[in-house]
Amino acid sequence: MMSEHHGHHIASAKQLWGIGIALLILTVLTVTVAGLGLPSPFDILTAMAIALTKAFLVAAFFMGLYWDTKFNSMLLIGALAFFILMVSITLLDTLYRDDIVPSF
């Protein structure tokens, strides 16, 4: 059972710095876009799109999911899926109530 390979991926310094700089740029971008004051659903949508892109970069490259076994990526995606499930089912109640806070 001795497994011969020690093939842990070693990211190059250039790659890591590249990701770091990309994250920096995206941060500046999201602040700038927020300053524009887009109309209501679009402001939050762009902010979340940028945040998701940043999250993707961190997860894929800093956390090494890109080179890792697929199962670890599945765990991350699964966690997000269950979070979305929790939020959306809860919203089915809170968005459709007659009174927001019942009877108080």
Partner: peptide, 11 residues
């Protein structure tokens, strides 16, 4: 019976 919305209860 908690006051949750009718939509949610049914689902």
């Amino acid at each position: 019976t908690s006051g949750q919305s009718a939509v949610a209860t049914t689902i």
